[in-house]
Each structure stands twice: as structure tokens, then as C-alpha cells.
């Protein structure tokens, strides 16, 4: 087992230091296209969490049975299966939420983050470690989506989770589809700036 990190470290890695949206810059499509409100971000986050956890578990369980030559097709098949499952379940149980997310649920199959975790982690590590890693990554993605959704919903329509908190709409612009690019760009710059300041302070101390 190559993994030397403890479970809390694994969990924290997905949430912060290797956040799939802000740090790894993977799965940017939903971050821009599906983040107009906190709710849509949260729902898509749940779906991705489900697919990530179940795919990682499947691969970790059967890693000895997977022939190295057909590794990638097998991953694709596994992910596609779980995406179909969540697609069918959501359509049946939460039709309203499903209608809002539209095509993006099916597109989880092409999200780079999931394949990447299978290739770099689940196919080498133990089942519990893979599970924790998948949960961390899934929550990291959900966290990113919710943060972007929070900013856009608050500034765009003055509401949070549909509840009116500001009483007015500060900038209609933020709810427009293309504002997603600006919000993600500005937030990335913001995180870079914090990291830079932090590093400067560390350097000054030493």
C-alpha cells in the first residue's frame, strides 16, 4: 500500500488542498454552467458524490480482476453504469430537481475528476482508503459548487436557497449564464491571493 496519509488527511485533501474545482481545475463545466443557485450546486454535488463513491468502491473491490490493458474502458463502463443508476433514480424520485439539472446529470460520465480518482487512487489503494478519498473529493466538489452558487445567488437575485435575504437584487448580471466564468475566475484569483499572502508571511517569519 503506497498510501501514507491518515484518513482525516485524505478527507481534508479533497476538500481543500486538492479541491477538484479550485485547485485541480477539473470538472469546470458544472462549476460554470450549473452554479446559478446554491440548490442546483448542492444537488449536482450530491449526484457527483454518489457516482464518485460507488465507482471508487467498485474499482477498489475488483482491482485485482481488472486487466491492465482494458483499464480505461472498464473505468468508463463502471462510471457510466453508476451515472445511469443515479439518472434513473433521480428521474423517478425527485422529478422536479431532475428537470432543473437536465443534461448535466448524464454528463457526469465525462467529468474528468471521477476517472482521475479511479486511475490515481482507487486502483492501487485499499477499499476503506478509497472510500474516504472518494467522499473527500465528492464533498470537495460539492463545497466548490455551493460556494460559487452562494456568491452568484446572493449577488444575482439577493436570495439564499430561495429565501429572500437582501430584499433587492444587487447585480442581475451574476445570474446570467456567462457570469459563471467571471465568478470562477475571480474566486480562483482570490484563493491564489490568500495563498500568496500566507506564503509571504511564512517566509517573513522564518
Amino acid at each position: 500500500m503506497a498510501n501514507t496519509l491518515t484518513k482525516p488527511q485524505l478527507l481534508g485533501r479533497g476538500l481543500l488542498s486538492q479541491n477538484p474545482i479550485f485547485k485541480l481545475a477539473l470538472s469546470m463545466c458544472p462549476a460554470v454552467g450549473m452554479s446559478t443557485t446554491v440548490m442546483t450546486g448542492l444537488m449536482l454535488g450530491c449526484a457527483v458524490l454518489f457516482v464518485q463513491v460507488f465507482s471508487s468502491l467498485t474499482i477498489a473491490l475488483f482491482k485485482r480482476q481488472i486487466h491492465p490493458r482494458i483499464r480505461i474502458p472498464t473505468y468508463t463502463l463502471v462510471i457510466a453504469t453508476w451515472v445511469t443508476v443515479i439518472d434513473l433514480v433521480l428521474a423517478a424520485v425527485f422529478p422536479a430537481a431532475y428537470a432543473q439539472m437536465g443534461i448535466f446529470i448524464k454528463l457526469i460520465v465525462a467529468f474528468a475528476i471521477i476517472t482521475m480518482r479511479l486511475e490515481t487512487f482507487a486502483c492501487k489503494e485499499s477499499v476503506p482508503d478509497s472510500f474516504v478519498d472518494a467522499v473527500g473529493m465528492g464533498f470537495g466538489f460539492m463545497f466548490g459548487m455551493v460556494v460559487i452558487g452562494f456568491v452568484r445567488e446572493l449577488l444575482g437575485s439577493g436570495t439564499i436557497l430561495g429565501y429572500d435575504v437582501l430584499g433587492f437584487k444587487p447585480f442581475m448580471f451574476f445570474i446570467l449564464p456567462c457570469a459563471g466564468f467571471f465568478v470562477v475566475g475571480l474566486m480562483m484569483a482570490f484563493f491564489n491571493w490568500i495563498e500568496q499572502k500566507y506564503r509571504e508571511r511564512m517566509a517573513n517569519k522564518s
Partner: peptide
């Protein structure tokens, strides 16, 4: 600006393209 280098400025550029494509 240092913190905008790389992806952040690329996103903002893409946002401007998106506005134009609107």
C-alpha cells in the same frame, strides 16, 4: 497581477467571449 496569472485571467477572458457570443 500575480494572483490572476494562469487560469483566473483565462476564465475572465472566456467570460468576455461568452458575453460577446450572447
Amino acid at each position: 497581477p500575480e494572483s490572476f496569472k494562469g487560469l483566473p485571467i483565462a476564465f475572465i477572458t472566456a467570460g468576455q467571449f461568452a458575453l460577446a457570443f450572447l
